[in-house]
């Protein structure tokens, strides 16, 4: 489950939960020495934690902002996460951060740029990271490969792993007119470190990745299909806006875990 400040009070009472691990948003903790970090370290005593960032800007031509990787490394040393991830995108320029997951063109130049930045990140952090496919609302005329070819090419070239967001693949498939199955089937299981599920909003003319609701039935179906190839992969339901009660979030996480277990049993049967 995603660790959100709305959960702090509950988690500090150390209740028994059915949550297996938490994902913490890197930037909420890397600059804080106050209560957020205190809570995260307490939660870490009871659960494995993954650190998920939004500001690495691994596809940015300027590379990560000065000092960013060092701060991330310092946080990782304290938290000892089982995974460090960020997004396969750029987030703006150093002089003007857009704070958004901006899409990259699927070109050789972009693969090389991401690979160079990811390699630096992995060198500083002393470990492999995972990069997540993002939802996008535009595509570049000069893209020379499909989104999934780009994702896999980056992971191979950078020797990093993939955080496969099934919802983002669905949103992009709908927005850009391809089959999400073609996308997800093309991602080699051994590259996937984690899976995200989430809810989008239908804006009428396009799908918008809002993380404001439960995954839709087609996304659950795609998840079933994907996890069958990679049972055992940690799964997270992302829910950031219009946060429902804890019980709803927990039930969603349990549902995903049960589908994952079925896939594991089917594999061993």
């Amino acid at each position: 489950m995603g660790l959100r400040s709305a959960h702090y009070a509950r988690l500090l009472e150390r209740p028994r939960t059915r949550v297996r691990w938490f994902e913490a948003l890197t930037e909420n903790y890397m600059d804080s020495r106050g209560r957020p970090l205190e809570v995260l370290l307490k939660v870490r005593e009871d659960y494995p934690v993954a650190l998920h960032g939004v500001s690495l800007s691994v596809g940015g031509v300027e590379g990560p902002r000065p000092g960013y990787l060092e701060r991330l490394k310092a946080l990782a040393e304290r938290v000892q996460p089982f995974l460090i991830s960020d997004h396969l995108c750029f987030t703006g320029a150093h002089a003007s951060n857009v704070h958004d997951l901006l899409p990259l063109p699927y070109t050789e130049e972009a693969v090389a740029t991401v690979a160079r930045n990811a390699a630096r990140a992995q060198e500083v952090l002393g470990r492999r990271i995972a990069l997540e496919n993002v939802s996008s609302y535009l595509s570049y005329r000069e893209s020379a490969m499909t989104e999934w070819e780009f994702l896999v090419a980056v992971a191979r070239r950078a020797d990093c792993r993939i955080l496969l967001d099934v919802n983002n693949a669905f949103v992009s498939a709908q927005n850009h007119g391809f089959k999400a199955e073609d996308y997800l089937d093309a991602v080699p299981a051994e590259l996937v470190a984690q899976i995200h599920l989430g809810g989008y909003s239908d804006m009428g003319t396009f799908l918008f990745d809002t993380h404001s609701r439960a995954p839709t039935p087609p996304v659950w179906e795609l998840f079933r299909r994907t996890i069958a190839r990679m049972p055992g992969t940690p799964v997270l339901i992302e829910w950031d806006e219009a946060l429902p009660p804890w019980e709803t979030l927990e039930a969603q996480a349990v549902k995903a875990a049960e589908i994952e277990e079925e896939a594991r049993e089917a594999r061993t049967a």
Binding site: Y137, Y140, R141, T205, F206, L207
Partner: peptide
């Protein structure tokens, strides 16, 4: 001019 819109969006 370098992009296309997703869904039924113009660039």
């Amino acid at each position: 001019a370098a992009v296309e819109g997703g869904g039924r969006l113009s660039a």
